[in-house]
Design a binder for these strands. Sequence first.
DNA 1: TAAAGCTATGACGTAAGGTTAGAGTCAAGT
DNA 2: ACTTGACTCTAACCTTACGTCATAGCTTTA
Lengths: 257, 257
Amino acid sequence: MQQYSVKKLAKMAGVSVRTLHLYDQLGLLKPSLRTEARYRMYGEKELLRLQQILFYRELDVPLKEIGVLLDRPHFDLVEALQSHREALLSKQARIKTMLKTIDKTISHLKNETTMMNHEELYEGLDHNTAGVYRQEATQKWGAEAVETSEKHLKNLGKAGFNDLKSAMKAIGEALYSAQNQNPTSVHVQALIARHYEIIRQFWGTSGSTDTQAEAYAGLGQLYVDDNRYTMIDGQAQPAYAQFLSKAMRHFADTKLA
Amino acid sequence: MQQYSVKKLAKMAGVSVRTLHLYDQLGLLKPSLRTEARYRMYGEKELLRLQQILFYRELDVPLKEIGVLLDRPHFDLVEALQSHREALLSKQARIKTMLKTIDKTISHLKNETTMMNHEELYEGLDHNTAGVYRQEATQKWGAEAVETSEKHLKNLGKAGFNDLKSAMKAIGEALYSAQNQNPTSVHVQALIARHYEIIRQFWGTSGSTDTQAEAYAGLGQLYVDDNRYTMIDGQAQPAYAQFLSKAMRHFADTKLA
DNA sequence: TAAAGCTATGACGTAAGGTTAGAGTCAAGT
DNA sequence: ACTTGACTCTAACCTTACGTCATAGCTTTA
């Protein structure tokens, strides 16, 4: 029977060692045994239970509650796991559906995107103070970071992608380059605004405004699901992607009449 | 010029007095003046700024960041307020759209809902252990609470509503009666599962499964927006409604192939 | 055998408040 | 004038779910 150390289990489940220590202390997840030197060792059963815990944690159920839920005498582990599996399948399905919708609307692609100057680059956020924002960003992170980010954006304008997927990938690159800086900055807000503009070109006029807004907000989920944007230095860092997702949702709710 | 005490401002904005004390201490929102007795008094300007703060707080922007954002020299207050207003309009529009969709699908209403027994009542969650769950719930909250809740559900079966709106209102009643208990309980989960079943009857077979799931998850927002479910004892208590909304989203993602 | 890497416990820090506690203040009713 | 009830002040401790040391013991590898 397989046994895992704290580190191994933590890595497998994507949590910190500290988290496992805490869960042990709270009685939420006890190791199956302790070695001579009091090292914690976990078995398969504990791995499964941890999955359950994380599953409920996603819904912001407090840890105490989770303990009660899982320790219910008639809790059906198999059924719960199946539902977990279905949740993953469903997520996959949602992404597939979105891609399908995107593919359909690609056919509307007509007008070329054009070269942009600095003012246009930031117009999604503010018409008049583009220079100010840019200067502010430059002061904060240096000219190089800002220019790299802008270069990506400008390339977006010139490129004329033949599908939305590559457009998203390119804008993702730009966002990625800004990510090590302050993610709540105006600069990132400008990127998000521009992001929407570009994607809208691929949607064309198909679909109601509401549908477009929904779809756009949905795209945010892609960033969360794609490792490309959640891994930094080999460490899971979902905070940034989640902020993006939220910001996109927010943008869709706010800016679209 | 209008002046508000802490309590008044707190009530208007839907936050606690403690929150205002904290924001004052952090320098995020200072009262416009202090009375002789050091009572905090806020003016219109502070009310507006508080709106801004809450706006960004919704996106989980840390308070420190919010301070930086709002104190930016070129921050355009009017524009920000307009965008806030648009956000509200957009929310309204989303609800309207959903109602429209619902109205359209009402025409598919054909099959009558039938009387349910206990097993059926809980089938959304588990086929075999309905009795166990029921017993558990009874032990926890007493027979009366459970029976009241079930009565509502059974009435749903008998009623044969002529529109989805009243169906939702009725199931809302049932959920409301269970709300003072533990909202993460299996009992509430059962209610949610049943909730979905009933609503599905009104959707009939129209729309893809994905659309149905989306629409169902969207309904959760109604609970959040409707004062009926967010006010308890005259106090704003959005936690429950938000949990419901989340749970419904989760259910939609999990249970729908 | 010594360095490198893993582990243990304990203690403190964090964000955004909640929750008392003790004391002062204000308006209304008697 | 006096009391009552509602309101306010500051200060201090509590909370959740961990992150981040610090110190010390254990294991593996060169």
